[in-house]
Nucleic acid binder design. Sequence first.
DNA 1: CGGATTCTTGACGAGAATCAAGAGTTGTGG
DNA 2: CCACAACTCTTGATTCTCGTCAAGAATCCG
Lengths: 255, 255
Amino acid sequence: MRSLLMSKDSDSAEKLICVGDMPLKKRVPFAALPPGFQSTFLDALTPREISALLKAARSVIISPHEVLQQEGEPAERLWLLRTGRVAVYRLTQDGNKLFLRWGVPGDTFGFATIVRTPAQYLVTIEAIQEGSILAWNLADCQALISRYPGLSKGVNRTLSKYLDGLIDRFVMCQLQSAEERLARVLVESAGQLGHAGPEGIEVDLKNEEVALAAHMSLFTATRHLSKWQRTGLLKKHRGKIVVPSLSCFEKIPAD
Amino acid sequence: MRSLLMSKDSDSAEKLICVGDMPLKKRVPFAALPPGFQSTFLDALTPREISALLKAARSVIISPHEVLQQEGEPAERLWLLRTGRVAVYRLTQDGNKLFLRWGVPGDTFGFATIVRTPAQYLVTIEAIQEGSILAWNLADCQALISRYPGLSKGVNRTLSKYLDGLIDRFVMCQLQSAEERLARVLVESAGQLGHAGPEGIEVDLKNEEVALAAHMSLFTATRHLSKWQRTGLLKKHRGKIVVPSLSCFEKIPAD
DNA sequence: CGGATTCTTGACGAGAATCAAGAGTTGTGG
DNA sequence: CCACAACTCTTGATTCTCGTCAAGAATCCG
């Protein structure tokens, strides 16, 4: 079985066009996952179930700024992030974004499709990197679940993990100062979005995005980042933060 | 009696040896639920499944201040609140409590028992009224689930509902002012804990508890409550708030 | 070279936490 | 029944964090 590598555009990639609710293109070969792929959802399933899932999946390429699902819209697909990164947030009435978390390969979304009635997405998800997802439409989901009741276990585990993570974030926002939150977001983002560079881990985020993730104003974020730059703990560029070592930021209270 | 806030001293020990693994009382007769009982968990199940569940359940009486599960402890039972009220919160390192929500009859807890590995409770739950629960131990849960895979659906729906509710609370805490949060907590608490009285809905909560639920200091809560009392929107007594009409408080932004 | 983003810094103010002090309420024991 | 202690509530003064606004600097891009 041949596995696709983590490359941005796989062979199947370039012919695919992708928009929120666009035409799904082609069936996924059975071994569509990169080696070492980890997923809370899939890991709870048997090989047989995974295989059935993958056979029914359709692959879609995603591009930065693309909205993959929008809260309130009818939930029509369950999907798994294969490569790339996404941001999960909730919209406020005045159009602002309330950040909830980053999504990384292996994360599964759109459970509202099979769990909620009426099926409406709970959150908005936006791609922030090139990547690809595996998607299942409502009918296929239902068929799969009735054929493989074990899938519910994967859903359970994933929902439980999200609940856990959200409680943690809630605790963080209620109990920690802006500076502590920012440090934590830096560590988190470095781990989930960062890539190695000559001078340390590079995180391609604008101050504005970091501020969003840390739940503070752009100015407060900038101030602390500037301070840390003066102290030499990190270096800033336009749209990028370079951290030589995370250790200084990690010792901040965990919750 | 210690109330919601002080958690350092565990003096509730003497009145009832509670916590996770206390003596279960007696087998439940098949028709153990009050008429009109509503439960997100049970409502997702077939009559056959519900009947099997109830037969396997054990009933336990709960008393105010009793800790029904404690975060971090091994999760050993799944349980359903039959009557009474509970508070769900998370503890901080310094022993304070971060309120998450009220629990009312029909709510189900302890999913960690069957979903998480290792099985550890995620949150702490404390009874705030006399009441009773139906509980299932780990072995029975597993037996029931393997016999009735449909149970997972109930778990799914319940977890999803909790996730939804938690996102809402998170949004509320991030975007609304103290006054708006307090108004909302009043409405919520009146609906879930309140009972009718001669002058309106009575909510038996101390200022301290209301403040906890609204995520603000005791003083800020007191100030707004006093102001509303001067305006005539409510009347306060020691450990109780009487609201003639909720309509004034309901018009606050929903999120 | 504009023009558009993105970042920086300072000044200011609103909201809410903290601290302090006391008033009102409830319960208990003598 | 009173006195006292414990608890709960109230209010004002103070402080602090952080958001908002303004103005400009740095960077990128066609």
